[in-house]
Simulated assay, not measured.
Amino acid sequence: MNFYNYHLINDFYIKKYELLSLNEINVKKKKFFLFNNKICIINEKQSLRTINTLTNFFNFLNIKYTVINNKHNFRKENIKDFSKTLGIMYDYIFFRGYNDIILKIIAKYSGSVLINMLSNGYHPIQSINDFFLTKNKIVFFFGDFNSNVFRSMIINLSKINIILIIISPKIYWNYIFLKKIFNKKKIILSEKLIIINKKITIYNDVWFSMGENNFKKKINNLINFQINKKILKVLKIEKIYHCLPSYKKTNFMNLKNLEIHENIFESNFSMFDKQIIEKIFTIKSFFIISKKNFFKI
């Protein structure tokens, strides 16, 4: 991100010291004060937790904002001109959408602070939030290696001294992505479950993002990477993080659960509730930093 460079488009933008700065503010739970910046939320991609958390935060503090849900802007208008229009009207743009290229165009031509609330490639707000919560030195990722929140979490966790173990089908291994950020000491990539005799954290995500439709093929690829009772028996699990509400009672292939069993998702291992609550403080941290002129408009 580089606070002096305005934007949070993906997790490559944020440096280690910036993560720690946000974390310090978040931990202290500093008091927040109102300000008069003009805020726009572009909600192209449906959201349950992320956008609701953001709007609830604004409403609670009586901060005014505008929501743009009209996809017409991206289908018919020149994105460069659209971006300049946004820049004239708004100081902050929170964008949740499908296209990472559009994000970069808006960042380049709007002149506003752009914060990615989720895109096909990355989910920085969620990853920064969960980064604050992840205290364990060993983190297991189960499922689709190319999940946007997996990619973001892996980038951020690679900046500190944490062992990352990715259990994923080989067809999803992204060597180009790995080459950007890892050395061999920081990551273990495997198709088979690796048993270790230490306490661990598990990070999980839904198998299907919005817009995906090839369900049967993906389930066949991922069914052996499900978080279930067998995994609980062989690993010393301390916490389980899940990016979205889990799929339950699905009719796909007569499966009652997909990426995580319902009884585990609702167990004491799950950090689901904590993830929602802490996201409010993560968002607040950004605004506190902006008032210190890190986000200099």
Rank of each mutant, 00 (worst) to 15 (best):
F3C: 04
F3D: 06
Y6W: 02
L8E: 02
D11H: 11
D11G: 11
D11M: 12
F12N: 13
F12T: 13
Y13I: 11
K28L: 09
K29I: 09
K30I: 03
K30Q: 02
F32W: 14
F33A: 00
L34R: 05
L34C: 04
N36A: 05
N36Y: 11
N37Q: 05
I39V: 14
C40D: 08
N43Q: 15
K45A: 03
K45S: 08
K45Q: 08
L48C: 05
R49F: 13
R49D: 08
T50Y: 07
N56S: 00
N56P: 02
F58W: 03
F60E: 12
Y65I: 12
V67P: 04
V67G: 02
I68L: 14
I68H: 07
N69W: 11
N70T: 10
K71V: 05
F74V: 14
R75Q: 02
E77Y: 15
E77A: 09
K80M: 08
D81T: 05
D81S: 01
F82Q: 08
S83T: 06
S83N: 03
T85L: 15
T85K: 11
T85C: 13
T85Q: 07
L86N: 07
L86D: 01
L86R: 08
G87K: 08
G87L: 04
I88H: 13
M89K: 08
D91G: 01
F94Q: 00
G97D: 13
N99T: 03
L103W: 02
K104N: 14
K104R: 14
I105P: 01
K108L: 15
S110A: 13
V113N: 05
L114F: 00
N116W: 12
L118P: 07
P124M: 04
I125K: 05
S127T: 08
